[in-house]
Nucleic acid binder design. Structure first.
Length: 425
DNA sequence: TCTGGGGTCCTAGGACCC
DNA sequence: TCTGGGGTCCTAGGACCC
């Protein structure tokens, strides 16, 4: 007997950040809302009823008046809240299906191979997640990941007709969706690829499904070849193993205002390194190389532009925040040029290896000092009492270059002093 | 005079995703 | 005045080897 054809579900939270905000603000259930990026820069999420008025990525300062005019309420992004709500949603999904790959903060693939009553299960997941967390999700079901994405997209587009669940394992339904979807909506087709495909007369998802995979591979790459094969139902992508350790870890952020002096930039880099090294230790990795870079603003033609970075080789792989911070901060002297208005710094941890995989260098001049215990205690304290409770002295508490977040909601689920207050009469 | 070819490893950069 | 952040994968090209 041949192996059962695989079945994937893609479960995706609707307007996730906006939905999270609404859970704790029932008074805004019928008021359109948007969520802004760090520094209240641009729009990164819109509730369903805000979509007709606001485009994704629109700069906040340009649309303030428009928001007011339509009564749209803006929020600064509150990642502590979204991260915690995401964990709750994913835990519920994991309890209902045999295998899950958490793909992003608001999406998960599930393996539904060999399961009867897929549509009913999809609806059950939807109602269960909604009841337990208040977050609405859409479910797309198909024989490949790329098709499941497309099914999910259709479920959202035709919410009223589909109830948020679409199964296109049936070839007739699949072809209907392929014919009625623009190729730009296909997972893996971005802005550039859309232009190339357009020139070849490939307009719909169906056109791409019918294109010759070998030609696509020769002309572009194996990535788009796989996409085309997945569209006709040939699986090229599997359900990934949970959480393989990252190969690079990055922390970069715009400053809350332009910086011209070296000292505050050093503070920022120390702060970003604190966060990056937390992530490094959370996945039990060590880091051998660091890249630190700084840049000026890119949009304002009046401002002089400068961007530069420096690569630092650590003498041995480490996860010690003190060593990493010193190396990064010292290296800034080499890239900082006076006379520019800096807007952003970035810390990148590279050449990662797992703890225990690494062998000491017999001839190295400086030998590793075992700081594992110290770092474990550091992470325990910060895990219990909040990030930044224990930190290096180079990291300020309330820097004046910090993020602008003027419209942030409370950390309803992660901070004891910000819990919801319910009044009983 | 004639001046190969195939392989690996590393890095930078492009494209894409959410 | 004010335009996000954090990733992955693939490819091309250079250095180096035999």
């Amino acid at each position: 007997m041949s192996k059962a054809q695989p079945v994937f579900a893609l479960i995706d939270c609707n307007s996730f950040y906006a939905s999270c905000e609404r859970v704790f603000r029932p008074d805004l259930a019928r008021v359109p809302i948007v969520v802004l990026s760090n520094n209240d820069g641009c729009v990164i999420a819109r509730s369903y009823d805000a979509k007709p008025y606001v485009k994704m990525g629109e700069p906040y300062f340009q649309i303030k008046h428009k928001l007011q005019k339509h009564g749209i309420v803006p929020f600064s992004s509150n990642y502590a809240l979204y991260g915690d709500m995401s964990e709750r949603v994913m835990t519920l999904i994991e309890s209902m299906v045999p295998a899950v790959e958490v793909y992003s903060i608001d999406e998960a693939f599930a393996d539904l191979t060999g399961i009867d009553g897929r549509d009913a299960l999809g609806r059950k997941i939807r109602s269960h997640v909604l009841r337990c967390t208040g977050i609405p999700v859409g479910v797309g079901i198909a024989h490949t990941k790329t098709l499941a994405k497309l099914a999910n997209h259709t479920a959202k587009r035709l919410q009223a007709q589909t109830g948020g669940v679409v199964d296109i394992c049936d070839p007739f339904k699949r072809d209907w969706v392929l014919r009625n979807t623009d190729v730009a909506e296909v997972w893996g087709v971005g802005r550039k690829m859309k232009l190339h495909l357009d020139a070849m007369g490939i307009k719909t998802a169906m056109d791409l499904a019918k294109a010759d995979p070998w030609t696509l591979r020769k002309k572009f790459s194996v990535v788009i070849e796989k996409t085309a094969r997945e569209l006709v139902g040939t699986p090229c992508l599997e359900l990934d193993e949970p959480d393989p350790p990252k190969q690079e870890i990055c922390c970069s952020r715009m400053f809350g205002k332009r910086l011209t002096e070296l000292a505050p930039i050093k503070e920022a880099v120390a702060t970003y390194m604190m966060r990056a090294s937390e992530k490094l230790r959370a996945q039990q990795s060590l880091c051998k190389k660091i890249r630190v870079s700084i840049r000026t603003g890119m949009f304002n033609p009046e401002e002089a532009k400068y961007a530069n970075g420096v690569l630092i080789d650590m003498p041995y792989p480490t996860d010690d925040v003190r060593l990493l911070t010193k190396a990064a901060v010292d290296a800034l002297d080499r890239v900082f040029r006076p006379g520019f208005k800096y807007s952003k710094a970035e810390v990148l941890l590279m050449s990662l290896c797992q703890q225990g995989e690494y062998t000491d260098d017999m001839f190295a001049t400086s030998q590793p000092i075992d700081t594992t215990k110290l770092m474990v205690v550091l992470d325990q304290i910060n895990g219990r009492w909040g990030r930044g409770t224990l930190r290096s002295a180079s990291v300020p508490v309330n820097p004046d270059w910090g993020m602008r977040r003027e419209m942030m909601s409370r950390s309803y689920t992660t901070k004891l002093d910000q819990l919801w207050t319910v009044l009983c009469q």
